[in-house]
Design a protein around this nucleic acid. Sequence first.
DNA 1: AGGGTCTATGTAACCGCTTACGGTGGGATC
DNA 2: GATCCCACCGTAAGCGGTTACATAGACCCT
Lengths: 347, 347
Amino acid sequence: MATGREIAQLCGVSVATVSRVFNQPETVNEETRSRVLRVAKELDYRPNESARALSTKQSTMIGLVWDTDHRRPGWRHPYLQDLLIGLKSALSAHGYHLLMLATSGDAREVGASLADPVGYVNMTRRHHLGGLVLIDSGSDAEAFEAFAQSGVPCVALDVAVDGPRATYVTSDNFGGARDAVRHLVGLGHTRIATITGPPGNQPSDARVSGYRAALREAGLESRDEYVVSGDFYRASGTAATQRLLALESPPTAVFAASDEMAVGALLAARAAGLRVPRDLALVGFDDIEIASVVEPALTTVAQDKPGFGVAAAKAIMAMITGGECEGPLVLPARLVVRESCGAVGDG
Amino acid sequence: MATGREIAQLCGVSVATVSRVFNQPETVNEETRSRVLRVAKELDYRPNESARALSTKQSTMIGLVWDTDHRRPGWRHPYLQDLLIGLKSALSAHGYHLLMLATSGDAREVGASLADPVGYVNMTRRHHLGGLVLIDSGSDAEAFEAFAQSGVPCVALDVAVDGPRATYVTSDNFGGARDAVRHLVGLGHTRIATITGPPGNQPSDARVSGYRAALREAGLESRDEYVVSGDFYRASGTAATQRLLALESPPTAVFAASDEMAVGALLAARAAGLRVPRDLALVGFDDIEIASVVEPALTTVAQDKPGFGVAAAKAIMAMITGGECEGPLVLPARLVVRESCGAVGDG
DNA sequence: AGGGTCTATGTAACCGCTTACGGTGGGATC
DNA sequence: GATCCCACCGTAAGCGGTTACATAGACCCT
């Protein structure tokens, strides 16, 4: 690889000038600049990122904190791939790259884990990362708080954080859930239950609030027995539905806080001999791929999946360049009506 | 952040000694070493990766080449998430991180794209990456070849590459397909068709070979009209199936080279008033999440998804440390029998 | 003509770590 | 007791950039 020094020699200028050509082009004479650029192109010069980072104490990398170790096996993030696509393309536009931080330690003690956010933060400093993207991995709000407080620009997904240079992006969980339940209400249901995510999980809590709000609006009482908690996984949706169906006055419609749980509910209904949507209407949340494929296709609340990545990237870049961080970013959540709610084709 | 110099001063040693403590511990006196380590711990010292990389011309990062830009919208890699989990955990064990390289250019010409592998390769040198992981993104075999030839250790997924320090990891597509079709043969089918991936796609080609081999074994003739090509997407599965059903002597069983296409086939069958598996048996490939959820659940060939990541990481690390690169790694592909082939519970 | 300004460039220190090379002291060897 | 070896450690030269500061010339003004 050609170095700046070589270019300098070939052009008869100093390395400082070469550096300036790339960093403050306006300060160098038109003719000199083009000469340097030409030679640089000929030599296929690429500035050494390590040297640059060492010198400026700033790299062109953003860290991705995604803890996979403590997950339940079988768990899949509902929209990781789209998120990455969005993140990557938005960061690319600024010349930034995404660094997936290693989580477990090794002999050299590179390690970091959510249990030890300090480790991550130090990784961040080690690599002079420009910022951090935190992917919600359950109920790690406390751990995330440590990141947010560290002063490193960071944006969390699906969990509210507070810190000097921290924001978060999340869907309009409240609104999405409210719309879903409104739709059910509009279809004539009065006994509407909900299956929630794990207690304390923020998106889940917001969805429950939306559910409650829609009931209130409609003048329907909200019964505690109709709010049963799951954990976002499919099996919990099945179990929750079984409990609901065993009630003295079982619901005629269920709003599940995740598509996985909605599928679980579907299985439970099927097992109980109920037909969906005729005997039990179902609405999910997330709009994962499965949603459109199950029989009947799942009515659900879709999130702007790549939008998460794009929004996160924008927020990070804003903090890096501007310094000020924006307030929480909430993305629209849109009800997509399919078959499981009994209103095919309706909006 | 504490630097090596600070530690050196506090310990009354030179920076060289501090460096040695971390890189060649055996060359430094027991007592000195523990003193340095203690102070390092107190100061929460973390070596500066940029400086280290600059000095050694080797970073602890592996590049991930995953071109999302030229993809059809809506396309999702069948097992990206598992792949990443596997990759990440295996790399972490060696203290390595995964860098998702930006693909599109910006003002600073950081850019790189599969169309310009040289760009990526330069990114690689810029960051002193230890190696590259190439994710198959269609039929980019030619582009990948350029990476493989660049001399950077690289391992490709699902596409054979050849180069001084390159290997690839793939499933036993041939064996998996053969098992699938054998199973169909064992069920009594004699008119078995296949829906392939895009022509030239290596996993697809191997699956077709497996299909042919199983027919040959069974003494069944392989008719050209029974081999219709798709593109891995769902819609192509539907279209292909329609063509197959319109044949004079339509098949009674279809082996699709991807689950997405199998689902497409399912839809086509349903639309044609056929019941699966009674009127048409179906087997897919990949075992994506959808497979177990559709009605009827899809019999398919499962790949060892996290295994891809782990194998890729191992191969890379072997090349980095050992120098020699291993031959192609082929992971087992296992037939999982569900309902769509008509042999529930059977092995 | 002398002084002030502005532009374009060079000089050199520095970022934090690695490593080749050389030096020191103590024990073993003859 | 001179020699040699070895374990341990320091000195200093990089790695390839960035940037504060200095310099030099051109131009304008009084």
